[in-house]
Design a protein around this nucleic acid. Structure first.
Length: 561
DNA sequence: TCTCAGGGCGCC
DNA sequence: AAAGGGCGCCCTGAGA
């Protein structure tokens, strides 16, 4: 039995609260109280708080040490419901939802904030976003009705609940921060890049590598300018279309080695160097801002600090507090396991029903034991590979796991034809803009003209854009359903850690880090394993597919691999 | 001085 | 060997 209440911060710093009945309608009068945190703290029996926006409310609660068990984020649910209804892109604010309900003019969403280094208070809420509790409850009641119109009511409810849970986790992670050793990071930078020169120019090692590149070409070349590098290769008689690593790598020229080394170190210098350290690390914590559900697929993003792109060498600087440990847990072959669960392919479910290396099992069945080929084939199927060995491997995969490949093929076909494509729980991929609509790309969805005869799905005949939409949709069902599962994983793990000192401090698609006292580490490892399989059952229902983790208990993130 | 697109690369 | 999906962030150069 859940005890649901709703709350809405008021203009004067107080808060309105109201109890809700099992039907989601108010079960008592609205009460005005003077203090938000006190209003929540004094009602420990409440298991779910309904509110407009987690970023509006929860950081303020956390700042006073108040945690909640569950929430329902109305604006987040609005985004998911709009997407499910095929109305992706309509304003998702509670004010917009209310206006649609009442037939008034719909206000556009406020513009996105930009990242601000070191910002302690996670969100600045623009004026005018607050909504009286009575109006909020009107929107909430309508959302409950809209849930009931979806094809899988229980899944859609699970999706909005899971993403609300994700927003709680994100807020808590933003507050906790990732333990970070400035000292180790500085040593690392010095070892890799050498001394910094006054004036902010390139550090010593980069300057040396730039000189080596120039020497190899026999003239001054700026390795950070692609046009300059392409010209230099051309003068040496080597034609390259770009200076991308994979294209340069195999060239036979003395500039290649220092050039690639320069690119690698340059990246560290500009993206994770001394100025990054200055901007993003305070008091032994790196505090990125995690945004749950920041992408159309449901994957999270971070705002500022590049938290999801920390180069492996820099992970040396992620160090647990004295007496504490990092429990680093990586889901094993998450995407093919998710494909097994959503496609119900008998063969793939069978191999995904074991905790052992899935790629090895696939290769034993379809690729004569060549694990690399099996992995490429699976990823090719998920990503929409169009050429090369991948296609041949895909054919082998299709023979042994026809239902799995058919599942992503069908998603691709739907995407090309502009039909709605959904994850397992019902997160919806925005369809391509139709003719006459705004033809700008939105959220990375390829749009544009189709070939006149490109409506039928015929490999090699669809237009470039339509094929790109197909690849997008193909990947969406797997990546997005994996994100569905990951939300349930986080929710379960958060629950398991509730009575411990352990804190979730990092999440990257299929990997979590928990920071905990050394004596809690074994408990946390078990909690993660349990949460993985529990999330699998909650997300995909009755399925034999397992979701095992590789876990490591370490003092330093870099030691986890 | 500003924004924007493209190139490039880090992570999954 | 070839170059598919999702992101964020940094640079540069072009154009307003």
């Amino acid at each position: 039995m859940t005890d649901r209440w709703a709350l809405a911060p008021a203009e004067d710093g107080g808060v309105d609260v109201a109890p809700l009945g099992p039907d989601g309608l108010p079960a008592g009068p609205v009460r005005r109280e003077s203090d938000l945190a006190q209003a929540v703290r004094s009602r420990p029996e409440v298991t779910r708080w309904v509110w407009r926006s987690t970023p509006e409310v929860y950081p303020r609660l956390l700042a006073t040490g108040v945690r909640v068990e569950r929430c329902y984020d109305i604006e987040d649910a609005e985004t998911l419901l709009l997407g499910h209804e095929g109305r992706y892109g309509e304003p998702h604010s509670a004010a917009a939802a209310l206006a649609r309900l009442r037939g008034g003019p719909v206000p556009p969403d406020p513009p996105q904030r930009s990242a601000e280094p070191g910002a302690q208070s996670p969100l600045f809420e623009p004026a005018g976003t607050r909504m009286p509790l009575a109006d909020l409850l009107t929107v909430y009641a309508e959302q409950q009705r809209r849930h009931e119109k979806t094809a899988h009511l229980d899944r859609m409810r699970l999706l909005t609940a899971a993403e609300s849970a994700g927003m709680l986790v994100a807020a808590e992670m933003n507050r906790a921060g990732l333990p970070w050793s400035t000292e180790v990071h500085r040593e690392l930078l010095h070892d890799l890049l050498g001394e910094r020169y006054a004036g902010g120019g390139e550090p010593r090692r980069l300057a040396e590598l730039a000189d080596e590149v120039s020497t190899a070409f026999g003239r001054r070349v700026r390795p950070d300018l692609p046009a300059d590098v392409i010209k230099a290769f051309a003068q040496a008689g080597i034609k390259v279309k770009s200076t991308r690593r994979w294209e340069i790598r195999s060239l036979d020229h003395p500039a290649v080695e220092p050039l690639l080394e320069y690119k690698k170190l340059y990246r560290i210098w500009v993206a994770h160097g001394w100025s990054w350290l200055q901007d993003w690390v305070r008091d032994g914590r790196f505090r990125p801002e995690f945004l749950a559900g920041g992408t159309v697929t449901g994957r999270w993003v971070t705002n500022g600090g590049g938290a999801l792109q920390i180069p492996k060498v820099i992970r040396r600087a992620v160090v647990a507090d004295p007496g504490w440990r990092l429990v680093v847990a990586d889901a094993d072959q998450m995407e093919p396991r998710v494909l097994a669960a959503i496609s119900r392919d008998p063969g793939l479910m069978e191999v995904a029903g074991r905790a052992s290396d899935l790629y090895q099992s696939v290769s034993d069945r379809a690729f004569s034991g060549d694990r690399d080929q099996a992995k490429l084939a699976v990823l090719g199927a998920v990503y929409g590979q169009t050429s090369g060995d991948g296609l041949k491997n895909l054919a082998a995969l299709r023979r042994r796991f026809p239902q799995a490949v058919a599942y992503v093929d069908e998603a691709a076909r739907a995407g090309e034809e502009g039909r709605l494509v959904r994850t397992w729980l019902g997160r919806t991929c925005p369809p391509a803009a139709r003719a006459g609509e705004d033809a700008t790309e939105e959220a990375g969805i390829p749009v544009g003209e189709d070939d006149p005869d490109g409506q039928a799905w015929v490999p090699g005949y669809a237009s470039t854009n339509s094929r790109a939409r197909g690849r997008f949709a193909r990947n969406f069902v797997v990546q997005g359903s994996a994100a569905d599962w990951a939300l349930l994983l986080l929710a379960a793990l958060r629950r398991a850690c509730a009575g411990l000192a352990a804190e979730l401090v990092f999440f990257q698609h299929d990997e979590v880090i928990v920071h905990c006292p050394a004596e809690e580490a074994d408990t946390v490892v078990r909690a993660i394993r349990d949460a993985g399989d529990l999330a699998g059952r909650l997300t995909f229902g009755d399925t034999p597919v397992r979701f095992p983790f590789t876990t490591a208990v370490v003092e330093c993130y870099a030691d986890a691999k």
